[in-house]
Simulated scan of single mutants.
Amino acid sequence: MTDDPLSQLPLFATDQQLAVAVVGKARASMWVKTVIPQLEKKGFPRIDPLHDGRPVPLVRRFYDGYFGITAGFNVAAPDGKEDLSIWKRSKRARK
């Protein structure tokens, strides 16, 4: 079992359920009223009318992208062997 609050939710969750999982019970109502409308402008999953909730896997995917997790770590991978011999010390450093 995992401590991840999103994994404890049903496949389609209400805004209140998502809010509690994301920011906690104390800030949930604020998050529903002010944050969700802002996030929807950035691609936050919409409520599915058939299931009357937001798809939790898409919410997780949204946050992975929001925090840059989906970019992966290859962005910072070295692109080849470094040739340190090309660096020269400045004249000030030699004194």
Score class of each variant (00 low, 15 high):
Asp64Glu: 15
Tyr63Ser: 00
Val56Glu: 09
Ser90Glu: 08
Gly24Lys: 01
Ser7His: 07
Asp83Asn: 15
Asp3Lys: 08
Lys95Arg: 15
Val32Gln: 12
Lys91Leu: 15
Ile69Arg: 06
Met30Thr: 15
Lys91Ile: 13
Asp64Asn: 08
Arg94Glu: 15
Ser85Gly: 09
Ala93Thr: 10
Val56Ser: 03
Val20Met: 07
Asn74Glu: 10
Gln16Ser: 10
Gln17Gly: 02
Leu18Gly: 12
Arg54Pro: 02
Thr34Gln: 10
Ser85Tyr: 01
Gly43Gln: 00
Lys25Pro: 06
Asp64Arg: 05
Pro5Lys: 13
Pro57Asp: 15
Leu11Asp: 14
Phe67Val: 08
Leu58His: 03
Pro57Lys: 11
Gln16Pro: 04
Gly43Phe: 02
Asp52Asn: 14
Phe62Gly: 04
Arg60Gln: 11
Pro78Thr: 12
Asp3His: 07
Pro45Ser: 11
Gln38Pro: 01
Phe62Ile: 07
Gly72Ile: 00
Arg46Ser: 04
Gly65Cys: 10
Trp31Lys: 03
Ala71Asp: 13
Met1Ile: 13
Met1Pro: 08
Tyr63Thr: 05
Thr34Cys: 08
Asp83Gln: 08
Ile47Trp: 00
Glu82Arg: 15
His51Gln: 03
Pro45Cys: 09
Arg60Leu: 07
Ala28Leu: 03
Thr14Ile: 01
Asp64His: 03
Glu40Asp: 08
Arg61Gln: 14
Asp15Phe: 00
Val75Glu: 13
Ile47Ala: 06
Ala71Leu: 11
Pro37Leu: 09
Asp15Ser: 05
Ser29Gly: 10
Val59Phe: 00
Thr70Arg: 14
Pro10His: 03
Val23Gln: 10
Ile47Met: 04
Arg92Glu: 15
Lys81Glu: 14
Arg94Thr: 13
Arg46Val: 04
Leu6Ile: 05
Ala77Asn: 12
Ala76Gln: 14
Arg94Asn: 12
